[in-house]
Design a protein around this nucleic acid. Structure first.
Length: 311
RNA sequence: GGUAUCGUAGCUCAGUCGGUAGAGCAAUGGACUGAAAAUCCAUGUGUCGCUGGUUCGAUCCCGGCCGAUACCA
């Protein structure tokens, strides 16, 4: 009885996850931890879909975590997220509250569930010095001996290749402690996992409508502000679809209409990749209770609350 | 109204000196452990505008019709 003490809400973009999570949290005496790789950045609000008003339920603001915790321009990653997530989750538990994890970054959700072993890996100065005279090819060969290459981002950027080597070497060293599922307060076995579902065509329509709304609400302006702050256009393209395409428009590489339609398509494709990830989780025997997105957040929150209290 | 060009995949277009067709994009499925809204892999798709004719055989050649565009009136 009551062996599930945490709730996870996932789903593709534009399905109303945030509002649902907030309503669920208000009914279960919980706080929300965001598992969103983009909403961690300050100053990136419209483009990452930070709907802060969604956290207000019945006049109260539901506490939310891991939003606005990094500077735009800095680089946050899966290790940072694991570390921060465990800290915040343990803190919430210590205060006697429940946890609602909410997000669309499949990899971050799996990290939150403690499915990865990620180890604190300092920069290896000695290796950095030695590698100065190595060619890119030699570095790639070293990485290959340590682990299979995931994709071209491993090797197209020399500094990333070096970092990947350091991490792969550290991972092979069993002595050092790692952040792993042993230390994760939120796990598959103690969580109820829900997904918000819409037919694909409906998700696309929602994405397009939301994009129109965001453009009207000043998203060009938001990107302009970031550029004004001195973030380089080529860096800004790494911070998500909106930033990538709008920067291309603001720097004159795309007309407004081209930008809109390319961006719209890119978000559609992103939603598809998110669904692929969630199906993969299910294939790995992680059970996801799918909720009909057409139902109101209150209705779906009721379903979640009932399952949560009766498990 | 006349002349010219065009009409091929969801879109933009290529092509077949006559033997029923192919690229890019889109779409769909998949992979994924330190940039993950990243990155990468795989897979279709068609009354070749309609209708007659020539031909063993027409998407391709010829006629007519319809539609689009440009120019001329």
């Amino acid at each position: 009885m009551n062996n599930k003490t945490n709730i996870v809400i996932l789903g593709p973009t534009a399905t109303g996850k945030t509002r649902l999570a907030a309503v669920v949290a208000s009914k279960t005496d919980a706080e929300v931890i965001s598992a969103d790789s983009r909403q961690v950045y300050r100053g990136m609000d419209l483009g990452t879909g930070k709907d802060l008003l969604d956290y207000e339920v019945n006049g109260l603001t539901i506490p939310s975590h891991l939003i606005d915790i990094a500077d735009a321009g800095s680089q946050y990653n899966i290790f940072d997220f694991s570390r921060d997530f465990y800290r915040v989750a343990n803190d919430i538990i210590a205060r006697g509250k429940k946890i609602v994890v909410c997000g669309g970054s499949g990899m971050y959700i799996e990290a939150a569930l403690g499915l990865y072993k990620l180890k604190e890996t300092p920069v290896d100065e000695k290796f950095r010095r030695e590698s100065e005279k190595m060619t890119d090819d030699e570095l790639t060969q070293i990485l290959k001996t340590l682990r299979p290459l995931h994709n071209s981002t491993d090797t197209t950027d020399r500094s990333r290749t070096m970092r990947a080597i350091e991490i792969a070497r550290a991972a092979k060293n069993p002595e050092e402690e790692s952040i792993s599922h042993e230390t994760s307060p939120v796990r598959v076995d103690n969580s109820l996992i829900f997904g918000v579902e819409f037919p694909r065509a409906e998700i696309k329509q929602r994405i397009t409508e939301r994009l129109e709304k965001r453009m009207k609400n000043g998203m060009l302006n938001e990107v302009d502000l970031l550029l004004d702050k001195g973030i380089k256009p080529e860096d800004l393209t790494y911070y998500g679809l909106e930033y990538r395409f709008i920067t291309l428009h603001l720097t004159g590489k795309l007309s407004y209409d081209e930008m809109f339609s390319l961006l719209n398509t890119a978000i559609h494709q992103f939603a598809k990749r998110q669904m692929t990830w969630f199906r993969r989780m299910e294939r790995k025997d992680i059970s996801i209770h799918w909720l009909n997105g057409d139902q109101s957040p209150e209705e779906n929150a009721g379903i979640i609350e009932r399952l949560f209290n009766n498990n």
